[in-house]
Nucleic acid binder design. Structure first.
Length: 576
DNA sequence: GGTCGGGGCGCG
DNA sequence: AAAGCGCGCCCCGACC
């Protein structure tokens, strides 16, 4: 059953049960306590909540201690559909439509605008919002059903919506983070925490390195954070460097180069994940970033604040399970090449991907050299062709023609300005107007074409080449995540067996759902479950099952396996 | 005083 | 010569 919901003020809401096609047979019901109403429906059986945006609605429910099992997130679904159908343009020009404009879009367009325009917070027109929600949702169901592969697209919408639930829950639960461990890590590398005044004071080790760098430039004062100043300082010593990035400095013969490499590494840690980061982002033993579901065009997540998806490996030492709990870290091994194998239906390739080390299985085609197999595959997926890669690509093309053709035709489509789609139907953005005008063939073949046109065209080819793989891998990961979330919720905790339990001050007392094993991190092809020790086994079993299930749901019958490596650890740093 | 693009680098 | 994809965040320096 689907139930549409719009939240009112003070925990109230307007609800309405929907028919299968999304139509509304009954009048809406006003409830004073939404979380109680949600609890009631969740107890009674299978309900899918239809709401405008989980990111907007779900955190309040979680704060009230209430979880939902399933939802249809109209905002997330709408983005997937807009990506597929192209944005209708007011000027009547085609907007990159894939399947042509749907008839009678005007009404649903108006409903959507009502739904997402800023409402009057003091006196929201709940009935109007619910109408708009129900109309938009029904329109979405029709458009999903009209997809070339409706079941796949419906799976994508369901998984994306579930992603919205996971994201809110992970923010609420937080990633266990030991501020004391982080602090001593920083102190060990940078020196003790400098006093907050004067602001911007360098920690001891950085100040020392900066002084040594000045000295290495013969006493010239140089700001080591300024690439421009550094390039000029090197030039003054007769060393010409095109930039000051690591790969350049590594090969520079000057006493400052080595110091700069060390300085940059530590300065980066200090700036991005130093004490200021710790103060802003970690509280009560938890790091609580905000995740942006579908924030990357490929369907990968992005994050807002705290750089949650770029936590440096050295800081994994600070990610420690609560007493009586462990971290179960699961990582999809060689996900993207396996996804390519499944996408392309290349039999020889797929059989190599049936298990174990994929690159090793393919090494035979490359004279037994695993490293060469890896370079060839990464080049095929990323569009690299420099150096040795070109020749290895030739080998790949001969031995695994279908896998090669799959990415080649995606690249060609992109170069020609077309869009491409992931296995479940996420669509890449169309080229910009600027790209179109740049790459357009001029009517006069003799007139010189913009020299940037070829480069722009090839760049888009690399983007679409990579998109089909990266976005399909994201499809798989999202389905995995949704399935794992569902399974974790079904694991019950042996009563009173949860060790000392987590420090109570670090946990939201209402978060009863976080008393059991729950997701605390998701990074593209890797998840972390914070898990009470007594239920490690069922959690590992759930991970095994869901890995199988995700491959089957997303790719259907394929010999390709998507193995998950798991580690049960107290500290994230020990997982690899 | 603020914004914005580029350089650089963290993650996958 | 350009040079493998996708992000977020920091700092700098140019600019308003």
């Amino acid at each position: 059953m689907r139930v549409a919901v719009v939240a009112g003020t003070g925990g109230s809401a307007l609800l309405c049960e929907l028919a299968e096609d999304g139509s509304r047979p009954d009048d809406p019901v006003h409830v004073n306590d939404l979380s109680a109403a949600v609890a009631h429906y969740e107890r009674c059986g299978q309900v899918r909540w239809v709401w405008a945006s989980g990111a907007a609605s779900y955190p309040a429910l979680l704060r009230a201690g209430q979880r939902v099992a399933r939802c249809h997130d109209v905002a997330l679904a709408g983005r997937l559909l807009v990506g597929r159908d192209g944005q209708a343009r007011a000027d009547g020009q085609p907007g990159g439509a894939v399947t042509g404009p749907a008839p009678d879009r005007a009404a649903s367009q108006a409903a959507q605008e009502t739904l997402f325009e800023p409402a009057d917070a003091a006196a929201p027109d709940l009935a109007g919002l619910l109408d708009a929600l129900v109309t938009t949702h029904a329109d979405q169901l029709r458009r999903i059903a009209a997809d070339e592969h409706p079941a796949r697209f419906a799976l994508l919408v369901a998984a994306e919506s579930a992603g919205g639930l996971v994201a809110a829950e992970m923010t609420s639960a937080g990633l266990p983070w030991r501020a004391d461990v982080h602090d001593s890590l920083l102190a060990g590398l940078l020196g003790p925490r400098p006093p907050s005044v004067p602001a911007g004071a360098r920690p001891a080790r950085l100040a020392e390195l900066a002084a040594q760098i000045d000295e290495a430039f013969g006493g010239r004062r140089v700001n080591p954070d300024s690439p421009g100043q550094l390039i000029r300082a090197f030039a003054a010593d007769g060393v010409r460097v095109p930039s000051t990035r690591f790969s350049v400095l590594r090969d520079v013969d000057h006493p400052a180069a080595r110091l700069l490499i060390e300085y940059k590494e530590l300065a980066r840690l200090h700036a991005a994940n130093g004490w200021a980061w710790l103060d802003s982002w970690v509280s009560g033993g938890r790091f609580r970033p905000e995740y942006v579901v579908g924030g990357v065009v490929s369907g990968r997540w992005a994050s807002r604040g705290g750089g949650a998806l770029q936590i440096p490996k050295v800081l994994r030492r600070a990610v420690v399970a609560d007493p009586g709990w462990v971290l179960v870290v699961a990582d999809a091994a060689q996900l993207e090449p396996r996804v390519l194998a499944a996408l392309a239906g290349d039999r020889a390739f797929a059989e190599a991907a049936a298990g174990g080390d994929l690159y090793l299985a393919l090494a035979g085609a490359f004279g037994g050299d695993r490293a060469k197999a890896k370079v060839a595959l990464l080049s095929a997926m990323y569009g690299g062709a420099g150096g040795e890669a070109g020749q290895l690509l030739g080998v790949l093309r001969r031995r695994f023609p279908l896998a090669s053709q799959y990415v080649e035709s995606a690249a060609q489509a992109g170069q020609e300005g077309h869009v491409v789609r992931s296995v479940l139907g996420r669509t890449c953005p169309p080229p910009s107007a600027q790209w179109r005008s740049l790459t357009e063939e001029s009517g006069d073949p003799e007139s010189s074409r913009d020299p940037g046109a070829g480069a722009a065209s090839r760049a888009r080819g690399r983007f679409t080449r990579n998109f089909v793989v990266q976005a399909s891998a994201a499809d798989w990961a999202l389905v995995l995540l949704a399935g794992l979330r569902r399974r974790l919720a079904m694991i019950s905790i042996p009563n009173g067996d949860v060790g000392a339990g987590p420090p109570t001050q670090s946990r939201d007392p209402a978060a009863a759902w976080a008393q059991g094993p729950h997701l605390v991190f998701f990074q593209h092809d890797e998840v972390i479950v914070h898990c009470p020790e007594p239920v490690v086994e069922p959690v590992l079993a759930a991970i095994r099952e869901v890995g199988e299930e995700a491959g089957r749901l997303v790719f259907g019958a394929t010999p390709v396996r998507f193995p998950l490596t798991t580690a049960v650890v107290n500290c994230y740093a020990d997982a690899k």
